[in-house]
C-alpha cells in the first residue's frame, strides 16, 4: 500500500510538472501582457521597457528555469494585475469555489444517484419514465440557461434570493442549484444503467434466493456493485467543478478560481494562470487518487489484483 502511494505520488508530480511546463509555454506564446497592461497607444520602447521590468524579455527557456527554481521554493511569482504573489491570489479565491462545488456535488450527487437507482429499481413503470424525463431535461438544459432562468424566477420575479454575489447562504442557493442540476442529470442516467447491469446478475439472484430482505439486496448487493462507474463519473465531475465552474461563476458574479483564471488568461497574467492551473491540476490528481483508493474499498478484488 505504501509503495502504491509512493508511486502514485511520484506519477502525480510528473503530471503536475508536465502540465505546468505546457501552460508556461502556451501562455507565453499567446500574447504580450505588457501591451495589454499599458494604455493603448504606448510606444514600442515603452512596451519593451515594461517587458524588461517584468522579466519577459528573456527567452522562454530562461524564464522557465527561473520559474521552476522559484516554484520549488514555493514562490510562484507575482501577479501582474494584483501586484502580489499569484499563489495567494488563487488560494484566496479557492474557498468560494470549494463552497459552491461542494454544495453542488452534495445535492447533485445525492439527487442524481437517487434518481438513477430508483429509476432502475422501478424499471418499466410510469414512475421510471417520469424520473428519467426529468433527468433528460436536466441534461438537455445548459448550465447558463438554468442559471439565467433561476435568476429571472427567484431573484427578479419572486424576489426571494439575490441575483448573485458571494457571502451568505442566500447567495449560494441559486448557483449551487444551477450546478447541481448539471451534476444530478449527468449522474442519473449512468446510475440507472449501472444498477440495471447488476440487478440481474447471478450474485443478486443468489441474494434473493437466500431470502434476504429487499432492502439488504438493494443496498448491500445491487447498489454497492453498481457504485464503481458512478463514483468514477462523480470524481470526474468533482474535478471539473472544483477547478472552478467558469459559467456559473461568471453568471452569478461568484469570486471563485474559475473566474480568476479566465480573467488572468484574458490579461495574460502568467503567474496567476500558472498558479491556478497548478492548483486545478493538483485537485484533479488528488481526486483521481482518492477514487482509486475508494475502488479498493468498494471492491476488495481491485486492491488485491493491482500490482503497483
Amino acid at each position: 500500500m505504501l509503495r502504491y502511494i509512493t508511486v502514485r505520488a511520484a506519477e502525480s508530480l510528473v503530471a503536475l510538472f508536465g502540465v505546468s511546463a505546457l501552460v508556461f509555454v502556451a501562455a507565453r506564446l499567446s500574447g504580450d501582457p505588457a501591451a495589454l497592461m499599458l494604455p493603448m497607444g504606448a510606444s514600442a520602447e515603452q512596451i519593451s521597457a515594461l517587458r524588461e521590468e517584468l522579466g519577459l524579455n528573456k527567452t522562454i527557456a530562461e524564464q522557465f528555469v527561473i520559474f521552476v527554481s522559484n516554484a520549488l521554493q514555493g514562490d510562484f511569482g507575482a501577479s501582474f494585475q494584483y501586484g502580489r504573489p499569484a499563489m495567494s491570489v488563487v488560494l484566496e479565491h479557492l474557498p468560494a469555489t470549494l463552497q459552491l462545488a461542494g454544495a453542488a456535488l452534495l445535492v447533485g450527487g445525492i439527487l442524481g444517484a437517487g434518481i438513477g437507482i430508483l429509476a432502475a429499481i422501478y424499471r418499466g413503470t410510469l414512475f421510471e419514465t417520469g424520473l428519467m424525463t426529468i433527468a433528460l431535461l436536466g441534461q438537455a438544459a445548459p448550465v447558463f440557461w438554468v442559471a439565467v432562468m433561476l435568476i429571472l424566477v427567484f431573484a427578479v420575479n419572486l424576489g426571494w434570493l439575490p441575483t448573485g454575489g458571494y457571502g451568505g447562504i442566500e447567495n449560494l442557493i441559486l448557483p449551487a442549484t444551477a450546478l447541481s442540476v448539471y451534476v444530478a442529470a449527468s449522474l442519473a442516467r449512468l446510475a440507472r444503467g449501472s444498477v440495471l447491469d447488476v440487478i440481474n446478475a447471478e450474485y443478486v439472484r443468489t441474494a434473493w434466493a437466500k431470502g434476504l430482505s429487499s432492502r439488504v439486496v438493494y443496498v448491500r448487493h445491487v447498489v454497492r456493485g453498481a457504485l464503481i462507474p458512478i463514483v468514477t463519473l462523480f470524481g470526474i465531475i468533482a474535478g471539473e467543478l472544483l477547478g472552478g465552474s467558469v459559467v456559473a461563476e461568471t453568471i452569478f458574479g461568484w469570486p471563485g478560481i474559475g473566474r480568476v483564471t479566465i480573467q488572468a488568461i484574458e490579461a495574460r497574467d502568467f503567474a496567476v494562470v500558472q498558479a491556478s492551473v497548478m492548483i486545478i491540476a493538483a485537485i484533479f490528481v488528488g481526486i483521481n487518487f482518492a477514487i482509486d483508493l475508494l475502488y479498493g474499498v468498494l471492491d476488495p478484488r481491485i486492491r488485491l489484483t493491482r500490482k503497483a
Binding site: I151, A155, G159, T250, F252, G253, R259
Partner: peptide, 15 residues
C-alpha cells in the same frame, strides 16, 4: 458590485 455577466447585471437592477 462586480457583475461580469450582462444579463445578471440587468436582473440585479430589475430586482
Amino acid at each position: 458590485r462586480f457583475i461580469p455577466e450582462e444579463s445578471t447585471r440587468i436582473s440585479a437592477l430589475l430586482a
